[in-house]
């Protein structure tokens, strides 16, 4: 009987070698270990054995059963592994095909630049003020030391609606409105972004509507050196720590002294290139100390208070920053243009 068992084991293990799939393996298990299988048959015949033989044969029979069982298990593992491998192989995809992208829109570059500038000045303790685009002559001109028929009004060709109402030509009226609302209180530290209008024919560098952002500081003891320091801090935040500024005397009716502000050309770092017309400098700002007449009219005593103001064209800043060559792109809204500003 012992020999019978050993022969069965050999026969089973041999047969198992040719088993290659789950189904055959299952049949194999039923055939050898099932209730009608040869092993069960043999074990049934154990009753006929002597008491001495029974435990010996019992042990052998158990060994044979577990040997076959173990072989089935490892065969099972092997088959499962192979089957998984095959399935994964079948599931292979073409990873070179493009992904399904959620679309991302872009904030308009002008608003992007405004937000950047606002953030810098908010960090320096400024608040952001806004005002109407249709203005009174008084706020747009007179209160800014530009009386009627002043030659300097020619500097800004104006869209009038009536004699008294016009499209604001700069964001400076917001300064006056803020000063009036503050009723003589200090400090005032504001920046004012907004759209302004001038009678210009639209071309690559001119637009009848464009965007300004300007700043105003009023307090006791505000000095021109503070203006210089503030602008230096701003341009270094905006254009990088190695940016320098240069002030040139200029004229604005609402500031005295007045200055145009140049920064070192970001493109050539001051060496001179096509963008800065070989000068190494790029003009980006107008600025100055608030004219005493403007302070007086807004209810601030120029003997007690002083202040500075500065203003810049947002389109110009954006054009320099992104290398845009035509101001009209900002208002045409070609998707191929806008798409380029998706990046942060």
């Amino acid at each position: 009987m012992k020999e019978q068992l050993e022969a069965l084991k050999l026969e089973a293990l041999k047969e198992l070698e040719s088993v290659n799939d789950s189904k055959t393996l299952n049949d194999f298990r039923v055939k050898y270990l099932g209730k009608k299988g040869p092993l069960t048959e043999i074990l049934r015949g154990m009753g006929k054995l002597s008491n001495e033989e029974r435990p010996v044969i019992g042990q052998v029979a158990n060994e044979v059963r577990s040997a076959i069982g173990n072989a089935i298990q490892s065969k099972q593992d092997e088959i499962s592994r192979k089957e998984l491998e095959n399935r994964l192989k079948e599931e292979t995809i073409d990873i070179t095909l493009p992904g399904r992208k959620p679309t991302q829109g872009a904030i308009h570059p002008l608003n992007k630049v405004i937000q950047d500038i606002e953030d810098i000045f908010v960090g320096m303790g400024y608040t952001v003020e806004e005002g109407p685009e249709v203005e009174k002559d008084y706020y747009n001109f007179e209160a800014l030391n530009l009386p009627k028929d002043h030659p300097a009004r020619d500097m800004q060709d104006t869209f009038y609606i009536t004699e008294e109402f016009l499209m604001r030509t700069h964001t400076s009226p917001v300064q006056i409105r803020t000063m009036e609302a503050k009723k003589g209180e200090v400090p005032i530290k504001i920046i004012c972004p907004g759209r302004v209008y001038r009678r210009d024919d639209d071309d690559a560098t001119h637009s009848h509507a464009f965007t300004q952002i300007e700043g105003l500081v009023i307090d006791k003891n505000v000095r021109m050196s503070d203006l210089k320091g503030t602008l230096l801090q701003f341009v270094q935040e905006m254009y990088g720590k190695d940016t320098q500024i240069r002030l040139r005397p200029s004229f604005f009716p609402f500031t005295e002294p007045s200055a145009e502000v140049d920064i070192t050309c970001a493109n050539c770092k001051g060496d001179g290139c096509r963008i800065c017309k070989q000068t190494g400098w790029i003009e980006i700002l107008g600025s100055g100390m608030v004219h005493p007449r403007v302070l007086e009219m807004a209810g601030y005593d120029p003997n007690e208070y002083s202040g500075f103001a500065f203003g810049m064209g947002v389109e110009r800043i954006a054009m320099l920053k992104y290398g845009i060559d035509d101001i009209r792109h900002f208002f045409t809204n070609d998707l191929r243009f806008l798409n380029q500003f998706v990046r942060i």
């Binding site: 959620p102 991302q104 904030i107 308009h108 209008y197």
Partner: peptide
């Protein structure tokens, strides 16, 4: 813009 829309700016006139 996160939902894929582009912001535009148009003239007031």
């Amino acid at each position: 813009t996160d939902e894929g829309l582009h912001e535009v700016i148009n003239y007031s006139f």
